[in-house]
C-alpha cells in the first residue's frame, strides 16, 4: 500500500508584499521582489502554495561601518568607505536582488546627518542601482521621525520597504509611508503580543495590513535564536489558522545579530561566515521571507541553500 501523508488544510494565508516598482508601476526599478503569499508552513509544498522563495538582501550603510569586524572589511575592501560603490558592488558583483540600506549616519551619536542630506543620499542610491530598496532609519526615534518622512518622499513611487515602526513610535512613519506608497516594517522586541498589537495599531490608521512586514527581532545562533524561532512559528500557526492580524511576512536582520556574536569575530574568518549562514538557515525554516545579511560568501551559500530547498 502506498504511503499516505497526513496533510493539513489551513484557512489563512500570509499576505504577499511587493517591494520595488518598475517603470510601468510608477517607479524606476528593473525588477521587484515579492515575499509572503504562502498558505502553508515552510517547504510543505504538498500542503499548499508557497509562491515566493525566501529572498536575501545585502545590508549597506550610508557611512563606513566602523564597528564591523575585519573579516567583513576584507570581503568588501575599500568599497565600504563609499556607500554608492558598496551598493553597486553588491548588485553588480554579488548579484543582489534587493538592498537594505541603513541610514546610520543620521544618528546623533554618528554624523547627525540632516534629513535633507539623507533624502538626497537615497535619491542618489536609487539612481546608482536598479534593485528594490529596504530603508532603515538610524534607530533614534526622534531623529528617524524627521529623516524617514524625508526619505520616503524622496523615494516616492518606488514602493520601498521602510522601517521601523515600533509600538511607541509609529504614527509619523505610517503617515509618511501611506502618502508615498511604501511598505512598512513593524518591529517588536521578540514579543508576539506586541507584534500583533502593533499590526492592529498600524492598520487602525487605515494603512493596509497587506503592506506590513513584521520584524520579530531575532537573536543569532547561541543568542536567542530558538526564542525568535518559536515566536515566528507561533505567529505563523495563528496566521494560517485565520488570524489576519499576524499574517505578515517576516524580515530578519541576520547579519546584524550574527556578527555581534563573539564566536563570529574569531580569527578563523570562516567561523563568522558559518555563524551568519546557520542563523539564516534556521530562520528560513521558521518562516522568514526576507533576510538581511552582510558577508558575500554567507549570502552566496544561503542563496544556494534556498535554491535547493525550492527545487521541490
Amino acid at each position: 500500500m502506498a504511503l499516505q501523508l497526513a496533510t493539513e488544510k489551513w484557512s489563512g494565508e500570509i499576505s504577499e508584499v511587493i517591494i520595488g516598482a518598475t517603470k510601468d508601476e510608477g517607479g524606476s526599478r528593473k525588477s521587484v521582489v515579492r515575499i509572503g503569499g504562502e498558505n502553508t508552513l515552510p517547504f510543505l509544498f504538498n500542503e499548499g502554495k508557497i509562491p515566493n522563495p525566501v529572498c536575501v538582501a545585502f545590508e549597506v550603510w550610508d557611512t563606513a561601518p566602523s564597528d564591523w569586524p575585519e573579516c567583513l572589511w576584507r570581503a568588501f575592501g575599500k568599497s565600504l568607505n563609499d556607500s554608492l560603490s558598496w551598493a553597486k558592488k553588491c548588485v553588480e558583483e554579488y548579484k543582489a536582488k534587493i538592498l537594505c540600506v541603513r541610514l546610520q549616519s543620521a544618528h546623533p551619536d554618528f554624523a547627525d546627518t540632516p534629513p535633507e542630506a539623507c533624502a538626497k543620499f537615497i535619491a542618489g542610491l536609487l539612481n546608482a542601482v536598479d534593485v528594490p530598496l529596504v530603508i532603515i532609519g538610524c534607530g533614534d526615534d526622534a531623529k528617524d521621525n524627521l529623516v524617514l518622512p524625508a526619505v520616503s518622499e524622496a523615494a516616492k513611487g518606488e514602493r520601498c520597504l521602510i522601517g521601523s515602526a515600533v509600538q511607541d513610535n509609529y504614527k509619523t512613519l505610517v503617515a509618511a509611508l501611506s502618502a508615498d506608497g511604501h511598505n512598512i516594517i513593524a518591529e517588536s522586541p521578540i514579543d508576539i503580543n506586541i507584534a500583533k498589537q502593533l499590526n492592529i495599531l498600524i492598520s487602525d490608521t487605515g494603512f493596509a495590513l497587506s503592506r506590513i512586514v513584521i520584524n520579530p527581532t531575532i537573536g543569532a545562533l547561541g543568542y536567542g535564536l530558538e526564542y525568535a524561532y518559536s515566536i515566528m512559528e507561533r505567529a505563523r500557526l495563528a496566521a494560517l489558522s485565520g488570524d489576519k492580524t499576524v499574517a505578515s511576512p517576516f524580515i530578519c536582520f541576520v547579519g546584524q545579530e550574527a556578527w555581534k556574536a563573539k564566536e563570529a569575530k574569531s580569527e578563523d574568518e570562516r567561523q563568522g561566515i558559518i555563524w551568519e549562514m546557520l542563523s539564516a538557515a534556521a530562520l528560513i525554516q521558521a518562516g522568514a521571507g526576507l533576510l538581511v545579511m552582510r558577508h558575500p560568501v554567507a549570502v552566496e551559500k544561503v542563496n544556494k541553500y534556498i535554491e535547493r530547498l525550492f527545487q521541490r
Binding site: N193, I194, K196, Q197, I200, A235, D243, K244, T245, V246
Partner: peptide, 15 residues
Amino acid sequence: KNIYCDSYLDAYRRK
C-alpha cells in the same frame, strides 16, 4: 485559541 494582544477583543472581531 488566539494570541493575546492589548486589543484582543478588537483583533478577534476583525477575523
